[in-house]
């Protein structure tokens, strides 16, 4: 057993203290022959500190495309020649999407908009949309609307939005290579306000943007410092027309090693499989991830791309004897 895994067993599994940056890096650098032991340990950590439940979430795009920002991985930026056109979802369709999501057993419904931050039109749409969902559907509402002002944070709390997603996307040192229209620190500031408001903080990112292994470890450590309630892990799905459109996808084994390493950095967080898992890991990858530290999934489609059918994920959870987290447990 490599020393780092022995250390992690003691420190993370038994004492609930996450690995630091050097520890995460050591895990990321472990050779393939130790991958299954690493995944097993990450799984044990998740079972010990989070339990067997899996949080299931659906996401929907309220406003797609035409974003003024330049996140180099994103097909919704209006600055690239991506084929994604700008479109708004109407309230009845939003409520229908929430109902379909709830029907899968999901407890979380995240409303997402491709914006730098909300304008009045978007906040109005949110007010009406969230009220309509809360009146008709038994599901927790989360939101992801970019950078917020303090007034907007307060307003979202007032609407009953219980969790806010704002991804740092990558580590601080690599961020300027990926986004030039705003800074990592601006994102951090929104996260700070969200945390202080009492909303749950959801913050993760994308692996495979061209960051080094060292920068992946840096990112895990920075997320651990933020200590978010939830960390969604995406793997780059290179989108035509974006600056990262020709990047290779993350190797399956590297993706799994990263999942385990992030779990060992954050023993208690909700670690969610988000976009790109189908492309990076194929059908089998979902099982491997759920047995390697993941304890939450996005089911159904993503914002501009499609996922595997929710029924496939639910069947798998059943097979793995991992109960879907119930709504009562989240309230």
């Amino acid at each position: 057993m490599p020393e780092i895994l022995d250390q992690a067993r003691d420190q993370v599994l038994h004492n609930g203290v996450g690995l630091d940056e050097a520890g995460v890096l050591a895990v990321l650098n472990l050779p393939d022959e130790h991958l299954s032991a690493t995944l097993q340990l990450a799984h044990d950590v998740r079972m010990r500190w989070c339990g067997p439940e899996v949080e299931v979430e659906g996401i929907v795009s309220l406003k797609t495309g035409g974003c003024p920002e330049d996140c180099h991985f994103c097909s919704q930026s209006g600055l690239f020649t991506s084929p994604v056109r700008s479109v708004w979802l109407d309230i009845p369709s939003l409520v229908k999407a929430a109902k379909q999501t709830a029907a899968t057993g999901a407890t979380e419904f995240c409303i997402v908009a491709a914006v730098r931050g909300p304008d009045d039109r978007l906040m109005k749409q949110m007010r009406e949309g969230v009220a309509a969902i809360r009146a008709e559907v038994d599901i927790q509402v989360a939101a992801s609307l970019g950078m917020l002002t303090q007034d907007q944070v307060d307003e979202l709390v007032d609407m009953g939005v219980h969790r806010y997603n704002h991804n740092l996307e990558t580590c601080r040192s690599y961020f300027p290579n990926v986004v030039t229209t705003h800074s990592w620190e601006e994102r951090w500031e929104t996260l700070r306000m969200v945390r202080e408001s009492g909303m749950e903080v959801c913050c993760g990112g994308i692996l495979g943007l061209g960051e080094t292994v060292e920068q992946r470890a840096e990112f895990a450590a920075q997320l651990a410092e933020l200590d978010p309630h939830e960390v969604p892990l995406n793997f780059l799905n290179p989108r035509p027309g974006t600056p990262l459109g020709d990047r290779p996808v993350v190797e399956g084994r590297d993706a799994l090693r990263a999942i385990a390493a992030f779990r060992l950095a954050m023993p208690r967080t909700i670690l969610r499989y988000a976009g790109g898992r189908e492309i990076t890991l194929g059908d089998l990858g979902t099982r491997d991830g759920l047995l390697g530290g993941i304890n939450a999934v996005i089911v159904g489609n993503y914002l501009t791309t499609l996922g595997r059918p929710a029924t496939d994920d639910l069947k798998l959870l059943d097979e793995l004897k991992m109960p879907v987290k119930a709504l009562s447990a989240t309230l």
Binding site: R85, T305, L306
Partner: peptide
């Protein structure tokens, strides 16, 4: 794993809404 983006008949970019289902 993607919706269509261009109209197969006229090549116009389409307005595409992806939903959970």
């Amino acid at each position: 794993l993607e919706p269509p983006r261009y109209c197969g008949r006229c090549r116009r970019r389409m307005k595409v809404q992806v939903l959970p289902v």
